[in-house]
Design a protein around this nucleic acid. Structure first.
Lengths: 181, 181
DNA sequence: GTCTATATACAGATAGAC
DNA sequence: GTCTATCTGTATATAGAC
């Protein structure tokens, strides 16, 4: 547990990046091994099957979310602003992990779907005390989902319709006025 | 143009349903033919290649959106309420088409990504006149994206976190108060 | 722990009968 | 217009050398 082998992490990184950039279909064992700089046999030493590789990615996401919930709870501008801003962030480890696991969920991986639902529940639990009622909580969660979704759709290629800079500040102000307790 | 052959539509329906339910990877020519009740050869008469099949689905989505924009513009409770409610609808033809084309976009189909961006622009154009400023428009669009995203993630299986009934009414009231011109 | 070589299955696509 | 049969490439996985 304490320090996972380097090659293992390299393989997970490669698998994750391919899933995010090119989708489920492109994320083969072969492509993952090539991207990670190991042979197929080498990969299969660390992950004995495709589903073991997927399980490894899902498990790593769980650990990243633990850290994020902690950061959100003690964020400077409050959890709502932290949550919205981080939902619009791309290409940080957490964001990539969520997008990658979403791809697995869409491909029918039940554990991936379960993990995503669990994550959303934990975020909602952290936000709930700061909103005035259920509709306000829905509003915050859905705007965050919308921000994330637009990022994920672009895949990081095209500058998308997600507000940045002053537009993001204005959006956060609007949401907080409508939702904050 | 006037009346596309029945078998063609049956094939597109089958392809779409597999994409939505089981993802990009499961949506093979073989599986599509089987689901549509034709042979692989029969499918290939209507769509000479996989990319022709994908193009057919994308084109059909474009036609559905034309109708939706028209309905939204003349909707009873106003475009914002119509737009939010329809974003939370699952399993109507438009919703399924969007989800299916999203899967193609995630797999790297550029035309699919372009169509989705175009659709979002057209929706924004229809909503813009009814919102007070840019942040308000962002808010409406992102809540709609969030609603859609949650539907798409579930894949229609599990009763998701999308508000329904009175909770949906409350959400719409909250968004309209914050955003409406 | 990492490699090469190989077995098995299935993907997309072609040819040509009916 | 729809079918069967078949070619070719590639995906997952196994075996075993180093």
């Amino acid at each position: 547990m304490s320090r996972p082998p380097l090659a293992r992490e390299k393989v997970l990184d490669a698998f994750e990046r391919i899933l995010v950039a090119d989708g489920e279909r492109a994320a083969t064992m072969d492509a993952t091994a090539r991207r990670a700089g190991v042979s197929k046999g080498g990969l299969l030493y660390h992950f004995a099957s495709k589903s073991a590789l997927e399980a490894g990615l899902i498990e790593r996401l769980g650990a990243l979310v633990d850290d994020d919930i902690a950061a959100m709870t003690s964020a400077e501008g409050g959890p709502i602003a932290y949550f919205l801003r981080s939902s619009a962030t791309e290409n940080d480890p957490l964001d990539r992990a969520i997008t990658a696991v979403s791809r697995l969920a869409q491909g029918g991986n039940a554990a991936a779907g379960g993990m995503l639902r669990d994550i959303r529940d934990r975020w909602a639990d952290a936000i709930r005390p700061h909103t005035k009622d259920d509709a306000a909580l829905d509003l915050v969660m859905l705007v965050a989902d919308g921000l994330y979704f637009n990022n994920a759709l672009e895949g990081g290629s095209i500058p998308g319709p997600v507000p940045t800079g002053a537009a993001m500040d204005a959006l956060i102000a609007l949401v907080e006025t409508a939702a904050r307790r």
